[in-house]
């Protein structure tokens, strides 16, 4: 087991992502953050608070994609997590999906399907704390905290203080 990101580095990565979001979207007027449970939600909230510190507050929501997964039949039914879409809706917005780890890309595909049911955003972008490679679908992230080359068998564990009591990312076999 090795720790690949510590608290200060996680903070710095998220702050940098916040800056990149502002730069790329020329401000935050139409930006909306959607966290994918569980840890994507926490990360979206943190990026949201960096954005309001740097520029202005943006709506932050959560999107549970369980019902849209294509691998549901590979494991026992998962409990559903709350979905909350900000009242402004997604129509015409720049939606930024936030997740902790980008791996196969299947979660993001499911999220894109779910967003398709909810409306027609102007754009959908993806922010992840860790990109560990091994994509199974043609999906890439727009904002990456850190690229970590991994073996497909390794597991990447993101821990956040709001949920796990401390901030760190570890890779283990």
């Amino acid at each position: 087991m090795s720790i690949v990101l510590e608290q200060s580095e996680i903070d710095r990565s998220l702050k940098r992502i916040a800056h990149e979001i502002i730069e790329r979207n020329h401000g935050l007027d139409s930006v909306i953050l959607l966290g994918i449970p569980t840890r994507g939600v926490t990360l979206a909230q943190r990026i949201g608070s960096f954005l309001s510190a740097i520029d202005s507050p943006v709506p932050v929501g959560t999107l549970d994609i369980t019902m849209f997964r294509d691998d549901l039949r590979l494991r026992p039914p998962r409990p559903l997590v709350a979905t909350s879409i900000p009242s402004q809706g997604l129509e015409g917005r720049d939606v930024i999906l936030v997740d902790d780890v980008l791996f196969s890309g299947r979660t993001i595909r499911a999220a894109l399907d779910a967003i398709g049911e909810l409306g027609r955003p102007k754009s959908v972008q993806l922010a992840v704390l860790i990109d560990r490679g091994h994509r199974q679908l043609p999906i890439r992230a727009d904002y990456v905290g850190k690229n970590i080359p991994t073996n497909a068998k390794e597991s990447v564990k993101v821990q956040l203080r709001e949920i796990d009591g401390e901030d760190q990312v570890e890779v283990s076999l």
């Binding site: 691998d71 549901l72 039949r73 590979l74 494991r75 026992p76 039914p77 998962r78 780890v101 791996f103 196969s104 299947r106 979660t107 497909a152 068998k153 597991s155």
Partner: peptide, 11 residues
């Protein structure tokens, strides 16, 4: 879901 958990890495 599956009635029994399957092996393998899933994300």
């Amino acid at each position: 879901g599956a009635s029994v958990p399957t092996e393998g890495v899933l994300v």
